[in-house]
Amino acid sequence: MKKFNLKDILIPTVSLFLICAVATALLGMTNSVTEGKIKEVAAASAAEARLRVCENAEKFEEKTDKNGNVYFTAKDKNGETVGYAVTTDDKSYGGKIEVMTGFSADGKITGVEILTIDDTPGLGMNAKKDSFRNEYLGKTGALTVSKSASADNEIQALTGATITSNAVTRCVNKATEIYKNATGGENNG
């Protein structure tokens, strides 16, 4: 039988433990430095996206509707509501997709920004291009995707990326619902 040697077990365990402890301490330090910055960057990019989807907006107010959906109302410099920005997500080809949709005060889509997407470069990733996103501008109501957009509420699918086109459109439609509920609620109250 092998003889049980405490030293053989203790030294590796202790040294591995020490390495782990030092590594974790280092990571904690890095995190404390970068944590604020990461949040700042995320907030800044969200704010930038809101400005892009809502023209003429000066500042935004965060609100929550009765279903717990968060949306932003855009105010101009006189404090008048000029639009709304809603972020929605859905499942796309490569995973989660996050889309921010902007609405004008009269309910037309003023901008679509893809915040998160993990689709195939060259196909699904083309959703980020202006030519696709601009298809949504000025539209209202529930939208559908088709191979050749002929009707008003149709969006032409990206070549080879119907799944992504559908996912973006579902996000926009969800946003429209949230927008409708939000403004409907405001008018009633």
Binding site: D8, I11, P12, T13, S15, L16, I19, C20, A23, T24, L26, L27, T30, N31, T34, K37, I38, V41
Partner: peptide, 27 residues
């Protein structure tokens, strides 16, 4: 680093640097 646990030790060291780089890139 003791011979016996060198692979786990290397993995810990590499993983720490990867996480540090990841946090820096995110920021």
């Amino acid at each position: 680093i003791p011979q016996k646990v060198r692979i786990p030790a290397y993995i810990v060291i590499i993983a720490s640097f990867v996480t540090i780089i990841q946090l820096l890139v995110k920021a």
